[in-house]
Design a protein around this nucleic acid. Structure first.
Lengths: 250, 250
DNA sequence: CGGGGCCTTGAGGCAATTCAAATTATGTGG
DNA sequence: CCACATAATTTGAATTGCCTCAAGGCCCCG
């Protein structure tokens, strides 16, 4: 951003750098090294699988555009979404260290993904300790988010769960500079249900109730905010667990 | 283990090495380096806090004996336990990379903890990449456990939740060589409730039902197994998410 | 204009909660 | 070793949040 703004902003991996910088400081030299990483661009349609439980890979994925979910299944086929990834997020950084996948990764809409070879990342980590630290920070913030999801599902009622889920997504998108006030989320109510540990029917009823509370609107399959401040309150959302240096005013 | 078994087994940090070796391979030289780490021993009574939300520290804690919980609170004071730590587990390794704590750590019984300075660990990581990798693996396995807890709380009924929770603890304890068949867990039903997203009253009723199913017994405030194999089935427990090289037969 | 997702609504049921109180353990000091 | 205080477990009764099952409607897309 400081050294060569134009080159930086145009670069496909710019959102990735921005994400890393939310939690860690990276010098210009580090940033340049990341942007110089060799990568392959992957285009995927909505609802295509990127990684399966048990897979092993030799590259890491970074989401460039679109939306991706991580989920796990019970043996009875019940689904729990464990994370929603937005542009800039690394999707499977952990497999730089752990060989086998234990979750599923699937696109929620048409998405672009950067594939970076493990070897290239490892070499970079070795050369640039600050980058290694940034990657690990990214993983650890994700872990903090996993914990927050556990308390969300375990200790909040339907309305608060949904509100918290939406608040987090909005906060993270804003921190990444995605969208402004009027956020459109391409999530079906089935997805919200699987992310919050509810059924789609109950999500529907709860969203209706939130609409009549003037908290949000659900026109045309997308969720639009009416009052994010109150949604946060309802969701008992406090951004501290995100360890983000992005200050979200309003 | 290979080089100097006696010295190794007697060493207070031996369980820590064993824990790391569950997920990563460490050479003898690496092991020796870990055992040579300078540390201070801390003794704590039951129910004393080790770390508070918002704290920042300059050392890492490793549990040597006893039991520790990690939890988070909603703004309404509802508690969700996010992890149970057993001897050998590092408790707050993430603060090697992230400055501020976002959870609470509390002993569940009289415990011994090793305090290792961040600087010492960082120096070791630099000197021994295999150890750095092992520490990160440990963090990533913990993250996988967090995700499993989310699906447990989000997508399983009371009986399965409790069974899964117990199965995981037993599995991990066995992998660490703690106890044999007859496991005694010093957990109150309030703790089980806070770990599974239930109320203590319902945990009580569910445990009673499990007793009459001949799954377990709850004599004297401790939970004893009757049939761990069936408890695992009831809990839909599959150890794969633990990424452990410990083969648990039976 | 027809079909398949997705959303919506209703009725009924049940798992888990809430509130309250009794009982049983656990621990402590005299 | 007993008496007392406190914590933990147990039980009951009533309630409710969320689920299940089922059907109907909407809307996008070919």
């Amino acid at each position: 951003m400081q050294s060569d703004p134009k080159h930086f902003d145009d670069h496909p991996l710019a959102p990735f750098v921005q994400r890393l910088r939310l939690h860690c400081s990276l010098g210009d030299a580090d940033v340049r090294e990341i942007l110089d990483l060799p990568f392959k661009k992957l285009n995927r349609n909505q609802y295509s699988h990127l990684l399966r439980d048990g897979d092993s890979t030799h590259h890491c994925m970074v989401l460039l555009s679109g939306l991706v979910e991580r989920y796990r299944l019970t043996s009875h086929g019940e689904r729990q979404i464990l994370a929603i990834y937005i542009p800039g997020d690394p999707l499977d950084l952990e497999h730089l260290f752990i060989p086998l996948a234990d979750d599923w990764l699937q696109t929620l809409r048409r998405s672009e993904i950067a594939l970076i070879e493990h070897d290239a990342l490892r070499a970079l980590n070795f050369r640039r300790p600050a980058i290694a630290t940034a990657l690990i920070c990214s993983l650890l913030v994700d872990a903090s988010i996993f914990r927050e999801w556990t308390i969300n599902v375990g200790r909040r009622n339907a309305k608060a769960r949904i509100a918290h889920f939406l608040s987090e997504l909005i906060f993270r998108m804003r921190a990444q500079g995605i969208n402004g006030k009027d956020i459109i989320l391409p999530l079906t109510q089935y997805h919200i249900a699987d992310a919050t540990g509810l059924t789609a029917v109950h999500v529907n009823r709860t969203l209706k109730a939130m609409q009549s509370d003037n908290l949000l609107s659900t026109k045309g399959g997308a969720i639009r905010s009416i009052d994010w401040v109150r949604i946060r309150e309802v969701g008992d959302f406090n951004s501290r667990y995100l360890h983000s240096n992005h200050e979200d005013d309003e």
